[in-house]
């Protein structure tokens, strides 16, 4: 495992825990897109179907269990426990606009036409765009709370670090996963605007506002 990947995974865990912490301590899901969280939950479940069939390492299995359970907990907090605080009317992105194309693409582009591989490819494609409802919501309301910004930054950093990991693995191991790399680049690019706003505003102690 490369250091970039370890840093990426830790950044991913940090993002997930930050979000849970924010919702739990403020007892509010305000400003958080339930649709993005629902899609991330679908991503983890469809990707980690191999949890019981293919053992990689204790680290790998532990992370998979952590991602699935934290994601289910997040969805539960948003849609059940703190449902009254969830900004459903600002969360207007249509999930089928990304789920259907991700499924069609997975049927066309996969490493084997098997249920597991199609499910894996679907999860990779869906992950690339699952953040769109959240970014759409930030644009629509024109701002994000600081902790939501930190969450998005950690989540964006995770995939950016994975790109460095893929360069490293290609260079030193000759390892190359075209599906993950393509989707990962798309995913990272989606955070471009956000990264800019994060560095120019949040780091300087201001709130992230989309409109001047």
């Amino acid at each position: 495992m490369t250091l970039f990947r370890l840093a990426g995974d830790l950044s991913h865990v940090l993002a997930i825990l930050l979000l849970l912490y924010k919702i739990w301590t403020t007892k509010s899901a305000a400003g958080i897109s339930g649709k993005t969280q629902l899609m991330f939950c679908m991503v983890y479940v469809t990707r980690y179907l191999d949890l019981f069939t293919s053992f990689i390492s204790v680290y790998n299995s532990t992370m998979k269990v952590l991602f699935i359970s934290a994601s289910v907990a997040t969805v539960y907090l948003i849609y059940f426990k703190f449902k009254a605080t969830y900004d459903g009317n600002h969360d207007t992105f249509r999930m089928e606009f990304v789920i259907v194309p991700a499924l069609i693409l997975a049927l066309i582009w996969n490493y084997a036409f098997t249920f597991f591989e199609i499910s894996w490819a679907f999860s990779i494609f869906l992950e690339a765009v699952a953040i769109l409802p959240q970014l759409f919501m930030v644009t629509k309301t024109g701002e994000a709370e600081n902790i939501t910004s930190h969450y998005l930054f950690a989540l964006g950093s995770y995939r950016a670090l994975y790109i460095l990991n893929w360069i490293d693995r290609y260079y030193f191991e000759g390892h190359w996963d075209p599906i993950a790399v393509t989707a990962g680049i798309v995913q990272t690019v989606l955070y471009g605007d956000f990264f800019y706003l994060y560095f120019t505003r949040v780091i300087k102690g201001r709130k992230l506002q989309v409109l001047p």
Binding site: D50, M63, W120
Partner: peptide
């Protein structure tokens, strides 16, 4: 191959 590949990343 037909079985796909082993996905060792998260």
């Amino acid at each position: 191959g037909e079985e796909g590949r082993q996905h060792d990343e998260l």
